[in-house]
Design a binder for these strands. Structure first.
Lengths: 213, 213
DNA sequence: AGAGTAGGCGGACCGCAGTCCGTTTGTCAA
DNA sequence: TTGACAAACGGACTGCGGTCCGCCTACTCT
């Protein structure tokens, strides 16, 4: 896989619009302080009450900033929540690109493919509820246009092309990602009581059949 | 498949709470008139401006009723939008239960399974945008708890059990439904330019591999 | 150090989904 | 026909996500 940039969220206004001087982007120190405050307040509130119960107003109040500052910084509710898990998402993406086999490069494509689903599901256990809140506050179709989704989609497409050149890799990348959405996994886990092993086995079965392994 | 009731939406308050006299449910005639008015107004507005641009207030105004009446009748926005396509959903479910093979009973389970995806995708073409709006206005997890989803899930579970007893039918029913969600299909069709045939072929490939056909 | 300015700031404001409750109306029995 | 009641009605109200714009401040350039 080529050196795909690590992108976990749409660029914030900062990265996007600040004047660039000699390739260097500066952030005013009050802005940086407020961003830290906002993230800390959001993290605390989400941890104590659950992402879907916390409003933007309350985060702003808890952080001691105005509501406008939240939206300037993070764009919308989904952007703020996503920022709370961007470190974990980046780490996982890093593993896919530069980590050890079978997840990272070095192993045969089929093995990397079959390692992906279980690893993603494992990773998801820690923040599925938060990610579900992100997806819920995204308007229809935006989930699949988000940078993280595109990243995973590209990753799977490349592996599928290498593992089974005859199939429609682009289509099946979406198919393999669909049952990994936070909404589906949460429903299977909490609503139907399926355990992680069962989900991982099922996903691998699906992927293995597809590439003829 | 046993005589599963045709359920296309959560029961409205009418079917739910009205007093039942000798097995007969009565609806006051002003209530019936208002329901027709609301559905007609909603259908017209959705057709002319798209489901995601029409607010409940505007539907109420166009129908000449108060906003409270909309919510009393249909529960929430998702309920009202879903009511707009419940006829089409019912027809399709009817075909699955009592229609001609290969969709309906009579054909071998594998054939019925492989007929399901393409038929569902075909059906979806007409109201994907509306269904996406329904799903978007449902809070996280509710899509998979809705009666229509449960219906399709049961249908696929039964077919999978019959077609391939050794696999985890319950899990794979969810997997096969995941890429048929309106959000995914719309993105593939409109965002990526995949045509219906490609989606249908891909889905069949997936299902066929799974059951070893 | 001082002035000018780009960018940050915050809260008033908007339209939205959904709720609540006092008022109106259809229905049925006497 | 009429009276009583259950049910329907509707619009004011709440809290939400998101926007806007006038004020303020950290940085830069002299």
């Amino acid at each position: 896989m080529p050196d795909l940039p690590l992108i976990t969220a749409l660029p914030t206004l900062d990265e996007h619009e600040l004047p660039v001087v000699g390739g260097e982007v500066r952030e005013r120190c009050d802005a940086a302080r407020n961003r830290r405050r906002i993230l800390a307040a959001a993290e605390a509130l989400v941890a104590s009450e659950g992402a879907s119960c916390v409003s933007m107003d309350r985060i702003a109040t808890a952080a001691g900033v105005g509501k406008g500052t939240l939206f300037r910084r993070f764009g919308d509710r989904a952007g703020l929540l996503r920022a709370l898990l961007s470190d974990r998402e980046s780490d996982f993406q890093e593993q896919l690109i530069r980590g050890a086999p079978p997840l990272g490069p070095g192993a045969p494509p089929v093995e990397r493919l079959l390692a992906f689903g279980p690893a993603y599901l494992e990773e998801l256990q820690g923040y599925a509820e938060l990610l579900a809140a992100v997806e819920a506050s995204l308007e229809s179709g935006m989930r699949m246009r988000s940078a993280p989704y595109q990243f995973y989609r590209t990753h799977l497409t490349i592996l599928l092309r290498a593992a089974a050149p005859s199939i429609d890799a682009e289509y099946h990348a979406d198919v393999l990602l669909a049952p990994l959405s936070a909404e589906v996994v949460l429903h299977q886990r909490d609503g139907l009581g399926m355990d992680l092993q069962r989900l991982a086995d099922g996903w691998c079965m699906q992927a293995a059949c597809l590439v003829g392994a």
